[in-house]
Design a protein around this nucleic acid. Structure first.
Length: 229
DNA sequence: GCATTAACCACAG
DNA sequence: CTGTGGTTAATGC
C-alpha cells in the first residue's frame, strides 16, 4: 500500500470541485501538503478508532465506508472517485469514526488537516464547495437510511443493484466489487439471504449472474421491486 | 392455526 | 467464499 509520492495539484486532471476554485498560490500550498498513495483492492485507507491526521481525496477507484457496530461490520456507503472522504472526521474530531477500504485498486491524496482547515477559512468559495458536498452526502444518507429501514430484503437488494449500476458503474452489466457477505453488510442481510435473493432474481429472469458478474436484464422490474419494497 | 420472512446453523464444494 | 437445506422466531392474516 505504500508508494507515497509528490503531487502537483495545479496540473492535476482530477481536481475536486473544491480545488477547482483555488487560486494558483493556494494550489501550491495544497501541493506542498499533499501526498499521493496507491492502494490495492481490499487495502484499508484508514481505520475506525485510529487517530486521523489527514483528509482523504479519492482520485481513482471505488471505496467502501464502513463501521463496526456492537454486533458486526456495516457498510455505510460505497463511493466512487473523485470524492473527498472523511471530511466530517477532520472537522469534527481527531479519531476516525469509521473505516475506508478500497474495493478496487485506488489512488488517493492525503491532505494535511491544518492546510485543509486553513483553505476553508481563507477561501469562501472553497468552503462553499466543501459544504455543498457535505450537504449532498447528508441528504443521500437520509434517503439510504429510510429505504433500508422500511424496505424488506428484495427491495434493499434491488436498491443496491440499481445504485451500483446507475451511480457507480454507469452500466447495466458489471462485476460486483463485494462478496456476498459484504453485500449483506451493505443491505442489512445475512450472506445466505443475499444468495437466495440473488438466485431468485436470476430465476425470475430479472438479472443474469455468473459468480460476481451481474447483468441487469429487466431494470424496469427491478425499479418496481425497489419502489414496492 | 397457517403462511411468510429472514436469521441461524451445519455441511459441502 | 458460496450455495443449499433444515430449523426457528416473529409477524400478520
Amino acid at each position: 500500500m505504500y508508494m507515497p509520492g509528490k503531487v502537483n495539484c495545479e496540473s492535476c486532471l482530477i481536481k475536486s470541485c473544491a480545488a477547482e476554485v483555488l487560486n494558483k498560490q493556494e494550489l501550491q500550498v495544497l501541493s506542498a501538503n499533499c501526498a499521493g498513495v496507491s492502494y490495492k483492492k481490499n487495502e484499508k485507507l484508514f481505520q475506525q478508532g485510529f487517530l486521523c491526521s489527514n483528509i482523504v481525496y479519492v482520485k481513482t477507484g471505488i471505496v467502501k465506508i464502513h463501521k463496526t457496530g456492537p454486533l458486526k461490520d456495516q457498510i455505510l456507503k460505497i463511493v466512487k472517485s473523485p470524492r473527498f472522504i472523511g471530511i466530517p472526521t477532520v472537522l469534527g474530531g481527531k479519531v476516525n469514526h469509521y473505516s475506508a477500504t478500497a474495493l478496487t485498486p485506488a489512488t488517493v491524496c492525503f491532505i494535511v488537516t491544518d492546510i485543509f482547515k486553513t483553505l476553508i477559512l481563507r477561501n469562501g468559495k472553497f468552503a462553499n464547495e466543501v459544504i455543498n458536498s457535505i450537504c449532498q452526502d447528508e441528504l443521500n444518507f437520509y434517503d439510504l437510511s429510510i429505504n433500508q429501514m422500511q424496505k424488506q430484503i428484495h427491495g434493499r437488494l434491488a436498491d443496491a443493484l440499481l445504485f451500483l449500476s446507475d451511480e457507480i458503474f454507469e452500466s447495466d452489466s458489471f462485476e460486483l466489487p463485494l462478496s456476498r457477505s459484504d453485500l449483506g453488510d451493505y443491505i442489512q442481510a445475512t450472506r445466505e439471504s443475499v444468495t437466495r435473493a440473488l438466485s431468485r432474481l436470476k430465476a425470475d429472469g430479472l438479472i443474469d449472474m455468473q459468480g460476481r458478474q451481474i447483468n441487469l436484464v429487466d431494470k424496469k422490474m427491478l425499479e418496481k421491486i425497489s419502489k414496492l419494497g
